[in-house]
C-alpha cells in the first residue's frame, strides 16, 4: 500500500513537473547552458579531464537546481492550488507523500547529467571518460539518496513557511559553490570549508569525481563514502524529527493554506 502511494505520487509528480515550462527549462536548458559556460571556463585551465568538472559540474548544478525549484517549490504550488491541505489530511502519512514527490523529481532530474554529457559530446567532442564505472554507480546511488534526504528536510521546513521561493533562490547557487560542484572545495577559504564538510553533497561530488578519474586509493573512497552515509543518516534522523514536529505545528500555525 505504502509502495503504491509512493509510486503513484512519483508518477503524478513527474507528469506535473514536466508540464511546467520552468521545470523543463531547469531540466533541459540549464545543464546545456552550464556545460557551455563551464567548458569555456575550463578550456585553457590545464585541466584535461572535462568530465570531472564540466560535465559532472553542469549536470550536478542542474540536478540541484531542479531539486530546489521543484521538490521545494512544489510545496508552495500545492499550497496555492489548495491541494496541500488535501494531501495533508489524507489517511496516508504526509511524509510518505512528500517522499514520493521528491523521489519522482530527483529521478527525473538525473536527466540533467545525461544532457550535460550529450551537450559536451555534441558541441565540444568531449568523450565520456569514466575510469571506474562501478564505483561511479555506487557514488551516484549514494548521491541520489543523500539528495533525496536533503530535499525532504527542505520540503519539510518549507511546509511551515510561505516564503518558499525566496529561500530557494537564496540557497540554490551557494550550495553549488560550497559543495564544490564545479571546482574542488580546496579553493575555498578554510572557514567556508568547515560548512562544506558538514554538507553531504560535498562528499557525494568528491566520490563521483574520484570515480571519473579512476579510484586508485580504495580506502579513501570508502572512507569518504562512510562519512557520506553517516551524514545522510544524520539528515534522515533530522528529517524524521522535523516531520513529527511539523505535523502538529502546521495545524496550529495554519500555514497549509494561503487564505
Amino acid at each position: 500500500m505504502i509502495f503504491r502511494v509512493i509510486f503513484s505520487t512519483m508518477i503524478v509528480q513527474m507528469k506535473q513537473s514536466f508540464a511546467r515550462p520552468m521545470f523543463r527549462f531547469c531540466l533541459l536548458a540549464n545543464p546545456m547552458l552550464n556545460t557551455i559556460l563551464l567548458y569555456e571556463m575550463y578550456k585553457n585551465s590545464g585541466e584535461e579531464n572535462f568530465m570531472a568538472y564540466v560535465v559532472l559540474g553542469a549536470g550536478l548544478m542542474g540536478l540541484w537546481g531542479c531539486i530546489c525549484f521543484s521538490s521545494a517549490g512544489d510545496i508552495n504550488r500545492e499550497r496555492y492550488s489548495g491541494t496541500l491541505s488535501l494531501i495533508f489530511v489524507a489517511p496516508t502519512s504526509f511524509p510518505i507523500i512528500i517522499l514520493g514527490k521528491i523521489i519522482g523529481n530527483t529521478l527525473m532530474s538525473l536527466l540533467t547529467l545525461g544532457i550535460s554529457l550529450a551537450t559536451a559530446k555534441i558541441l565540444f567532442g568531449i568523450d565520456l571518460v569514466l575510469e571506474s564505472p562501478g564505483y561511479f554507480l555506487i557514488a551516484l546511488l549514494a548521491s541520489v539518496i543523500t539528495f533525496i534526504v536533503i530535499s525532504s528536510v527542505i520540503a519539510c521546513l518549507l511546509t511551515l513557511s510561505r516564503k518558499t521561493e525566496l529561500y530557494m533562490n537564496c540557497i540554490e547557487i551557494p550550495m553549488s559553490l560550497i559543495c564544490g560542484f564545479v571546482f574542488p572545495v580546496s579553493v575555498l577559504a578554510p572557514q567556508v570549508r568547515i560548512i562544506s564538510y558538514i554538507l553531504s553533497p560535498t562528499y557525494a561530488v568528491e566520490l563521483m569525481r574520484m570515480a571519473v578519474w579512476g579510484v586508485i586509493d580504495t580506502t579513501l573512497f570508502w572512507e569518504k563514502m562512510s562519512i557520506l552515509i553517516l551524514l545522510t543518516i544524520i539528515y534522515t534522523l533530522i528529517s524524521v524529527f522535523l516531520y513529527k514536529k511539523i505535523d502538529r505545528r502546521v495545524r496550529i500555525a495554519a500555514t497549509l493554506e494561503v487564505a
Binding site: 500500500m1 503513484s8 505520487t9 507528469k15 494531501i87 489524507a90 489517511p91 496516508t92
Partner: peptide, 11 residues
C-alpha cells in the same frame, strides 16, 4: 488521474 491519485492516497 486526479481521482485515481486520491483513491491511492485514501488507500
Amino acid at each position: 488521474d486526479n481521482l485515481r491519485y486520491f483513491s491511492n492516497l485514501y488507500l
